[in-house]
Design a protein around this nucleic acid. Structure first.
Lengths: 115, 115
DNA sequence: ATAATACATGAACACATATTCATATAGGAG
DNA sequence: CTCCTATATGAATATGTGTTCATGTATTAT
């Protein structure tokens, strides 16, 4: 790996940086994970589920979208282990399934609220 | 806003949830912000900049992408105030410009590393 | 002046993604 | 059984996004 010498970065430093880099698989999973939060509809769903457990119908009423759209998004959230579901009769109740969600939410909110 | 009564959620609770919901503009900015982290190339750039200040040429060598691609991504990072730039002659040095970046990175990494 | 280097940017293209529509499945009521 | 409700899912479509290519701008050197 060649690097220009504009700042005279030693090849040791380069080696350290490159080897400290998380493996590609992890970077990809990380990107995938952030992408899940990168959609307003999913963020609204996450917000409402942070208030209380909700069924799909209630969620779609609250976010003002069709049931199908909400189901599709819930599947993405489920696959990324951000929500879990519980079946009760014909209904499925969803709730948050990750203690990191609130942290991420709060940190990101702090960022965008700074000027 | 109508909600089914499968869990007998009081209309007071609904009002509280709905009014506690961040305004649409904020949700959109939040999604936009997370979207910035939702790309492997940008995550790699962020990682290298978390090690040290770097010029565009070095960055493109490190991430193994064309200078143009890196410039495009740096613009996105700059517009979202995650990196700042400093000009020195013909070169432009980039560095991280947000104290929340490390937090987000660490929290998300903790999530994906759990099982 | 010209040449060379560093970076930025617009256009184009390929690919991903969110929503809608239609339909399928599954459970409960009659 | 049939009907209805709740949810899931595949296909289609419109929109968004990342990369490349070509080119533009700016600074330095000769």
């Amino acid at each position: 790996m060649l690097v220009c010498n504009c700042k005279q970065i030693s090849s040791d430093d380069v080696t350290r940086m490159v080897s400290g880099m998380p493996p590609e698989v992890e970077i990809d999973r990380l990107a995938e994970f952030f992408k899940v939060f990168g959609d307003p509809t999913r963020l609204r769903i996450i917000y409402y589920l942070s208030c209380t457990e909700l069924c799909v119908h209630d969620l779609s009423a609250l976010v003002g979208m069709q049931q199908s759209a909400v189901s599709h998004q819930l599947k993405i959230l489920r696959l990324n282990r951000l929500v879990k579901s519980r079946k009760e009769g014909t209904m499925v109740f969803y709730s948050l399934d990750d203690r990191h969600v609130d942290d991420l939410y709060a940190t990101a909110l702090a960022h965008i609220r700074e000027q």
